[in-house]
Design a protein around this nucleic acid. Sequence first.
DNA 1: CAGATTTCTGTGAACGTGCACAGATCAGCC
DNA 2: GGCTGATCTGTGCACGTTCACAGAAATCTG
Lengths: 339, 339
Amino acid sequence: MSTQSPRRKRATVHDVAIEAGVSRGTVSRVVNGERYVSDEARAAIEAAIVKVGYVPNTAARNLVMQRTQAVAFIVHEPGPLFVEDPNIGEILLGANATLSAADYQMTILVVDSERDTERVARFLRGGFVDGLIMVSARTDDPITRVIEQLELPAAFVGHPPGLTAAWVGIDNRGSARAVTERLVATGRRHIGMIAAALDRDSGVDRLQGFTDALGDRFRSDLVESVPLYSYSAGVDGMRALLARRPEIDGVFAASDAVAAGAIEALREAGRSIPDDVGVVGFDDSAWARRTHPGLSTVRQPAAGLGRAAAESVLAQLGGEQPLVDGIMVETAIVWRESA
Amino acid sequence: MSTQSPRRKRATVHDVAIEAGVSRGTVSRVVNGERYVSDEARAAIEAAIVKVGYVPNTAARNLVMQRTQAVAFIVHEPGPLFVEDPNIGEILLGANATLSAADYQMTILVVDSERDTERVARFLRGGFVDGLIMVSARTDDPITRVIEQLELPAAFVGHPPGLTAAWVGIDNRGSARAVTERLVATGRRHIGMIAAALDRDSGVDRLQGFTDALGDRFRSDLVESVPLYSYSAGVDGMRALLARRPEIDGVFAASDAVAAGAIEALREAGRSIPDDVGVVGFDDSAWARRTHPGLSTVRQPAAGLGRAAAESVLAQLGGEQPLVDGIMVETAIVWRESA
DNA sequence: CAGATTTCTGTGAACGTGCACAGATCAGCC
DNA sequence: GGCTGATCTGTGCACGTTCACAGAAATCTG
C-alpha cells in the first residue's frame, strides 16, 4: 500500500541502532528483554524495529549462541507404514506441541534405506539440531548406534533392549496381559494371538503379556506372528490361525490395525463377533471405532508419549540428567463390543 | 575404545588446517570440492579431517552463505485430521524424499490456532528456511496472506482462489465429473453428493465437477454439505441424505473417508451396495481398500503431489520463476465393486 | 560532598565459515 | 630468458549476532 523502498537486504541490529540513535549493544538488550535499558531508549528502539522491519537473523544467533532451537524427529519406518500407523502422527503432533510451546522447531527425518542412515548421521553431527526424538527404533538399528555415541540430548519412544538413552513408553506387557485376562475371564477356551513386529520391544512385550495371562493354557500354535502392525498382516494372520485351529474363540491382536484385519478375515470365514470369537486390539486408534462391532482395546496415549519425549529432551537441554529407567505413560483399557 | 581426549569443543576448519599443515582456505576448498588443490595437500587434509573428526558448522555456513538448506512443511489442519487424513502423510513423505535427495532438510510446522499463525510468521521471517511447502491452505487464510508477502520460494498443495504463488494440484473438477459420469452411465436415477470442506478449493471443485456431470438432472436437495473430509462427517451426511431423499440410488462422496462413513450409514439403513446404492469416493486412500465392498474412487497421487511441490520449491531456489498457472498432476479412476 | 553503588550505554572481540584477492610456483613457448 | 597463462596457496574481510568489559551518568549513603 505505502511506497516501500524496494530493499532487498534484511535489516540488521545495526540498522535499528542507527535508526534509534543508540548502539548495537542496547538494541540487543531490548531484543532479548534484558535489564538496564532506559525507558526512552527502549521506546526509540521498539519504534525503530517496526519501522525498519527488523527480525533477528537466526544463523548469526545460532553461531554465537552455539545452539539451534531445533529438535529432530526421526522416524525409522518404511514409508507406507508411516502413513498407515496413526500413532506416529499423534506422537509427532504431541511432540510438536510441547516443543513449539518452548520455542523449539521440529525437523523431521525419515529413515528408510541404508543411504538414509548415512545422511541422517551427517545431519545430526553437523549441529543442525540441539536434540532429537526417535520413534520406532529397532533392535540392532544402525541409526540407534549412531545416536548413542553422539552425546546429543535424545529421547526414544519405545525401548530397544540395551539402549542407554532416555526413553518414554507404555507398559506393553502389563497392558497386554490385562486385555488378555479379560478374554479369559469371559470364558473363552481357545485364545490365540496375532503377534506383530517382533523385531521391536513393543511387539515382544505384548507377546510376553499374552503368555503371562494364559499361563498353563498357552499353546504356541495359537500364536501367529506377522511382520508389521498393519491391516493386511492382520488378515493374513487370522486366516492362518483359523486354518490351523478352527476352534479358536478369542484373539488378541497386537494392534488395532491388525485386529481390524483379523475381524475382516473372521467375517470372511462366517464367524460372528463377539459371539463366536472375541477380539481385542491395542492402541485405541481410529481403527477401533471403525470396526464392527467396536473394538475393545488398550488406550495408548500416543500424543502423551510425544509430549513426554519432548519434555525429556527439553529437560536434558536444561541440563538435567536423563532418567535411565525411562518414563512410563499410563494406559487404560477401553471395552467396546468385540469382547 | 581408544583413549580419546575428553574434548568438549568441536573441531573447526582451523584445527584441520593446523593438523594438515596448510591454511584454512585450502581446507575449505577440499571440503567444498573445488579445483586447484594439489594431490598431496588434498590427501593430508582428508586425513586430518578424519583424525580430528571435523564436521562443518552449519550455523557458520548458513550465516556466510545466506541460506539454510531447509524447507518448511506447513500444514494447516486441526490436529486430529492431520492424523486421520492419509494424504497429508503421503504428501509429506513425497516432499521429504525429493528434498532430502537434494540435501535439503524439512522442518514441519503445524498451524492450528491463531497463536500458531503468529509463531509461524515469526519463524518464516527469521530466515530459518529457504522456502516452504504449504498444505491444505484455506480461502482467506491468515497464514496464506503472511506467506504471500514474504517473498520466499513457496509451493502450495492445492489452490486457494486468488493465490499468486506457485501451486501443484490435481484436476479435482474434471476427476469428480468423471466418477460421477460413471454413476450416471450405470443407470442411477437419483444421484446425490456428500460435499465436504467447501472452505477449500478441493471441496468446491469436486462439487463443481459433480454438477457438471449431472447437468439438468442436478437437484440441490441431493447435495449434503459437511465440514470436513472425515469418516464421521460421512456418516452424518449420508443419514441426512437418506432422511431427505430415501429414493437415492447413487452417491459421490467428496473423499474416501467420507465414503466409508456413508457406506456405514447405508448399511445401518439396510441398503446394499452396489445393488441399492452405488457409492464412489475420492483419493484412493487406504480407506478405499477397506470398505465393503471395495470403493470405486479417484486415485490421487499424494506422494507425487509432495514431490512436485518440492521440485517447484527447488526450482525457485535455483532461480527459476514459479509457474503461475500451477502444475497439474494426473489422476486415474479406480473401479472396484461399490459402483 | 566524597565515595560507593546502581543503572545505563558503547566498543571490540569472538563465533566458524566462504570468498575475493594477492602472491607464489610452475610449465609452455618463442 | 622473459612472457603468458594455468595451477596452487595464504590472508583478511564479511556475515549478524551475543557477551564481556569499560566507562559515564545517576542515585544512594554516611
